[in-house]
Design a protein around this nucleic acid. Structure first.
Length: 270
DNA sequence: CTAAGGACCTGTCGGC
DNA sequence: TGCCGACAGGTCCTTA
């Protein structure tokens, strides 16, 4: 499912279709998501204009002059632009319908996504304790190194912790650690400052490359046109168990860290 | 406070 | 072909 690049791809894809559009209906077919969709969300959105589409971590924010819709895609969610007349299928949970006959449709088979409302989304309890955005200048090697002092979790779990840094999910955690040559099981507090600088550079590079490729499609992810992302072809380690390391040709290892599959090269990553 | 594990869901895939 | 377990890109919550 979507990590930061997939959410950003979605944001870029939907923005031209929803910006400055007037919402004339909100159709909710299934309100049981990660949290129930608030019953008053239609009233909040009706007749409002979307004046910006922002992203914070993996949350999309549709801003109106009265507050913002907060959308999270969970593990299997996607947003598409459709004609309002297009029939809905099984896991199409809600549509935001615009006056021009188009609609924004949310699909999420596993229902880990969410659709919430907040007057001030950055102060919402889900967003107000998040760490820095990985692509912003506040995310530095010094920050990561200092924050990791005395932390015993593995470096992979550490960079996947949204209180430390947002947007790094299971795929790009493995990919970034490979690029930085760091073993994903190493304790976060036992990595030198120099290597943390390397890691931050790698995270930024990997995320930017993935955004430029339109995200990664393995199973569920589709962009706002319903198409695939192309970063899969650039994955170095993720989903490549037993296949040759692109750097040294040793077979890629898979281990479970924090209940998540983790891919790395035993030879190149120390 | 940190860390570990369970929980929430449905769909798909591989093995027998 | 059918069944069954393992697994899937997230992250909150409880417990120790």
């Amino acid at each position: 499912m979507p990590e930061l690049p997939e959410v950003e791809t979605t944001r870029l894809g939907i923005t031209p279709w929803v910006l400055q559009k007037i919402i004339i209906d909100v159709k909710i077919r299934e309100s049981r998501l990660r949290w129930p969709i608030p019953q008053n969300i239609k009233d909040k959105l009706l007749n409002r204009e979307i004046f910006s589409v922002k992203r914070r971590a993996k949350y999309l924010l549709l801003e109106t002059n009265n507050g913002s819709a907060i959308i999270h895609l969970g593990m299997s969610g996607s947003l598409r632009i459709i004609k309002n007349s297009e029939p809905a299928s099984k896991h199409d949970h809600f549509d935001i319908v615009f006056s021009d006959g188009l609609a924004l449709r949310f699909r999420d088979p596993r229902r880990f996504g969410s659709f919430l409302w907040s007057k001030n989304p950055l102060s919402h309890s889900l967003l107000n304790k998040l760490g820095p955005e990985p692509l912003e200048s506040t995310f530095t090697g010094t920050y990561l190194w200092e924050t990791a002092r005395k932390r015993k979790v593995t470096i992979k779990q550490f960079i996947m912790n949204a209180q430390i840094v947002v947007g790094v999910g299971n795929i790009y955690a493995s990919e970034s650690l490979f690029m930085a040559g760091i073993n994903p099981r190493r304790q976060a507090g036992r990595i030198s400052k120099i290597r943390m600088e390397e890691l931050v550079i790698s995270i930024k590079k990997i995320l930017k490359q993935a955004i430029n490729a339109g995200g990664t499609t393995l199973r569920d992810f589709h962009n706002s046109d319903g198409g695939d992302g192309y970063f899969k072809t650039k994955l170095s380690v993720y989903d490549r168990k037993c296949r040759p390391c692109l750097s040294c040709a040793a077979p890629i290892s898979m281990v479970v860290i924090g209940q998540r599959s983790t891919f790395y090269c035993k030879n190149c990553q120390t």
